[in-house]
Amino acid sequence: MTALVIDDSRLARAELRHLLQAFVDVEVVGEARHADEARTQIQALQPDVLFLDIHMPGQSGFELLASLEAAPHVIFTTAYDEYALRAFEANALDYLVKPVMEARLATALEKARARLVAPAAPTAPEPAVLPLTAQDQVFVKDGERCWFVRLADVKLFEINGSYTQIYFENHRPLIPRTLQHLETRLDPKVFFRANRQQIINLKWVESIEPWFSNTLKIKLREGPEVEVSRKQSVQFRELLSL
């Protein structure tokens, strides 16, 4: 089993390498300090498993995974325990909280071995998941506060650190979802990906004006202004033109 260790801390990488020496079937083929370095290493080394930190300079571990067309198996290694649910939603094999204990590491590696040697069983195609309509209501929880929100009332979804912030009424809760995930669930006739950071509700557009380099700037009713990327500006014009 080949492994790539991704962590911005040199001491954390060295400690994990030391722990992995106890497992003779594991070969650490490389290290990376941040997402850009990791992408290069993943492409060049094609490791079986990533030992991946979450908080790193530049992009987080979740953002790195979202940027990959195909990712190796992932074992998260982090000093924070609050991202465990999101990690397993990203199909992680395991979630190890630093300092990593050898017994927990052994359990995680067992999961990796089982996944790597298991034959690919034929599976029936999953039924297509229909997009949520603007009239659908969704449950939103942020800390101790909860809402049942009609999607038509949501003006904007915006990346905020490792979370996505939802704009509705005067509320701005955070949810542990990526924009990529939300795009698969939202009706593309209503919700538009304006740029890498934001999805807007077209029903809340108040005004549109030309912006720099043939891009657009959109003002949302009772909401912020959103700059549309050059690529998405082209798509926006095509989408809404006769």
Rank of each mutant, 00 (worst) to 15 (best):
L186I: 12
I175R: 00
V140I: 15
A124T: 15
V149P: 01
V129L: 11
F148G: 02
R172P: 02
F157S: 00
V138L: 03
S162W: 01
I159L: 04
Y163I: 00
D136L: 06
L130D: 12
F139W: 05
G143I: 03
D142N: 07
Q180R: 14
C146M: 14
H171R: 11
V138K: 00
R172V: 12
P125Q: 10
E169P: 00
L130P: 08
L130I: 14
L179E: 02
E158V: 09
L174T: 01
P188Y: 09
F139Y: 13
A152L: 07
A121Q: 13
I166V: 13
A128P: 03
N170M: 13
D142C: 09
P125K: 10
I166T: 01
L130E: 15
P127Q: 13
F139M: 08
K155Y: 01
L132K: 14
K141T: 12
G143D: 02
T184P: 02
A134P: 04
H171Y: 13
W147Y: 08
L179Y: 07
E126N: 10
L182C: 07
A134F: 08
P173A: 05
G143E: 02
T123L: 15
V149W: 02
E144K: 12
Q137W: 08
E183C: 14
R185L: 15
Y167E: 07
P188T: 12
I166M: 11
V190A: 12
S162T: 12
R150M: 06
V190F: 11
K189T: 13
H181N: 12
V149E: 00
P188S: 11
A134K: 13
R145M: 12
S162D: 08
